[in-house]
């Protein structure tokens, strides 16, 4: 089974966001970058599928040279191959276009991604890859069973779960709870440092959206904070009813 896992490098969740001088991106000075947390579930699921069904796992990321760091994490976890597409990951269509091209090149049977990358929170690359390839997709997968080419999966929806049956080839996006990602072992981390990372140029697709501006959310007016007396509670209830009009 040829398994392609798309991963991305994102600012650590605890990062304080500062807008850069161009007003269109964040200032990356001093920002710690990590492997997108949902992508850990995607890599782990890819490795488990390989352990069960054979084949190989290729991890791919679209970004600058710094993204090699997360590709090495993928290799240290157990991926067989790593590919860096040199380009800018801001336009999700271009990311999807590149992933689809690589999926074709390696004759992938399955493409696994995280349910979202926690930088742009767009939830769009998995369905786009599926549509470009003409494949089925199941997003927000919290449980997966692959039997031959038959797939049954569970996904989280509003107020419940959906069961979906489909078949390979297929695109999946991983939800928390799908598995417990392994920690790479020190010798594997050392070995991953010297493994080759294939580099590719980005596809020639034109961007379909452009960033006009990026800004911090409007600061909220200072909240009305009270103590715990009966009068305080009565006042908050009054405000909820008369000022906010939400109860």
């Amino acid at each position: 089974m040829n398994i392609l896992v798309g991963i991305s490098q994102v600012p650590d969740t605890a990062t304080k966001i500062v807008i850069s001088a161009d007003g269109k991106s964040i200032d990356t000075k001093g920002v710690k970058f990590i492997l997108n947390p949902y992508d850990e579930f995607a890599i782990e699921e890819g490795l488990r599928l390989r352990e069960k069904h054979g084949g190989s796992v290729t991890v791919v990321s679209i970004g600058a040279d710094t993204a090699k760091e997360i590709l090495r994490t993928g290799l240290a976890m157990g991926a067989d191959k790593a590919v860096l597409v040199k380009g800018d990951a801001v336009d999700s269509f271009i990311v999807a276009d590149n992933l689809s091209a690589i999926a074709k090149d390696i004759s992938a049977d399955i493409v696994i991604l995280g349910r979202q990358s926690i930088d742009f929170d767009s939830f769009q690359v998995a369905p786009m890859v599926a549509e470009i390839l003409g494949w089925p997709s199941v997003t927000f997968v919290s449980s997966l069973n692959v039997d031959g080419s038959a797939i049954s999966a569970e996904r989280d929806i509003e107020g419940g779960k959906e069961s979906v049956t489909t078949s390979l080839p297929c695109v999946l996006s991983a939800q928390k709870g799908l598995n417990d990602p392994r920690y790479p072992k020190l010798p594997d981390i050392m070995k991953a440092k010297s493994k080759p990372i294939e580099e590719r140029a980005s596809s020639s697709a034109a961007p379909r959206v452009s960033v006009q501006s990026m800004e911090l959310p409007a600061a909220k007016g200072k909240g009305k904070i009270f103590g715990d007396s009966d009068q305080d509670i009565a006042e908050v209830v009054r405000l909820l009813r008369e000022e906010a009009k939400v109860i």
């Binding site: 966001i17 807008i19 742009f120 929170d121 034109a206 379909r208 959206v209 006009q212 990026m214 959310p217």
Partner: peptide, 20 residues
């Protein structure tokens, strides 16, 4: 058509314009 969408866990907002 342009639209604003929260990014970086709601810590920033990006305004995007569709070019197609």
């Amino acid at each position: 058509v342009s639209a604003t969408h929260p990014v970086y866990a709601g810590k920033a907002r990006v305004s995007l314009k569709i070019e197609t």
